[in-house]
């Protein structure tokens, strides 16, 4: 699904990623753990194509195609989704409208008929229930006045609606209380399937108790210094990152 080879990248002349290798197969859940400033968010921004990063070496392949020249829109339309660490507020832009525009952009790109308002609402209401969200949320402006938990649920709602093949969850657990964490994890677990992959970026192993990863990677100074199974996450929780640092 996602194959990253020897990826080096810099922001404003500072190297953030120093040779990342990552291979996520269909149906796999990978977790990347690391301290602040280790390059976690840079990695997710580069995979989704955000401006301002320069790839100096290496390649990113998604479904066997190099995507480094693709713009963010194209990457999204091909099924790469990111749940933002800090979801962006869009004042005055109705949530329903936003979601519908996103879904229809994708349907159009895939040669499917665009959904009308009625059919869209039917789909969206089911997903709302799955995430235990109130339907009044649909009338609100995108992330405007949302609590931290509401914002993160909104991200997952978007994921469930857009049905991506690769979902990157960038610190989705930060700022969530335990109930919200459970609801979101349930949503993700239901969405799991053999042809969908996840890259979960987190500080803590807490989220990984609910969403079980196949492989855990430890990112330090822009390099993956260790990979292992879920036990690695527990060890990190116990010992911190110090023992892995050079």
């Amino acid at each position: 699904m996602l194959e990253i080879k020897n990826l080096h990248a810099k922001v404003e002349n500072k190297f953030i990623l120093n040779g990342i290798n990552l291979n996520i197969k269909p149906g796999e859940i990978h977790a990347i753990m690391g301290k602040n400033g280790s390059g976690k968010s840079t990695l997710s921004n580069i995979i989704t194509g955000k401006d301002g990063y320069e790839i100096t070496q290496g390649d990113i392949k998604y479904k066997n195609e190099s995507i480094t020249e693709w713009n963010p829109e194209k990457r999204s339309l091909h099924g790469i989704f990111m749940s933002f660490q800090y979801p962006v507020v869009m004042p005055g832009v109705n949530n329903t409208y936003f979601l519908k525009a996103a879904l229809n952009a994708k349907r159009k790109y895939n040669g499917q008929k665009e959904l009308d308002a009625a059919r869209f609402l039917k789909i969206i209401k089911e997903k709302l229930q799955d995430l235990k969200m109130d339907s009044s949320y649909l009338q609100r402006a995108v992330n405007d006045g949302f609590s931290g938990g509401e914002k993160k649920r909104n991200e997952i709602l978007q994921m469930l609606t857009l049905e991506p093949s690769l979902s990157i969850l960038d610190e989705t657990d930060s700022g969530l209380d335990i109930d919200a964490l459970k609801i979101i994890s349930d949503g993700v677990n239901r969405y799991k399937s053999p042809d969908r992959s996840f890259l979960i970026i987190t500080h803590y192993q807490r989220l990984l108790e609910y969403i079980e990863p196949d492989i855990v990677h430890v990112l330090i100074d822009g390099e993956i210094v260790k990979s292992g199974d879920k036990k690695l996450a527990l060890k990190l929780e116990e010992k911190g990152y110090g023992w892995l640092e050079k």
């Binding site: 989704t48 955000k50 401006d51 713009n71 963010p72 829109e73 990457r75 999204s76 339309l77 989704f81 990111m82 933002f84 979801p87 962006v88 869009m90 936003f98 525009a101 996103a102 952009a105 994708k106 790109y109 978007q158 857009l162």
Partner: peptide, 15 residues
Amino acid sequence: GEDQLFYCSQRGISI
């Protein structure tokens, strides 16, 4: 904001 535009394009919405 660039952030707003990036958010939209990450959801497949054109500039």
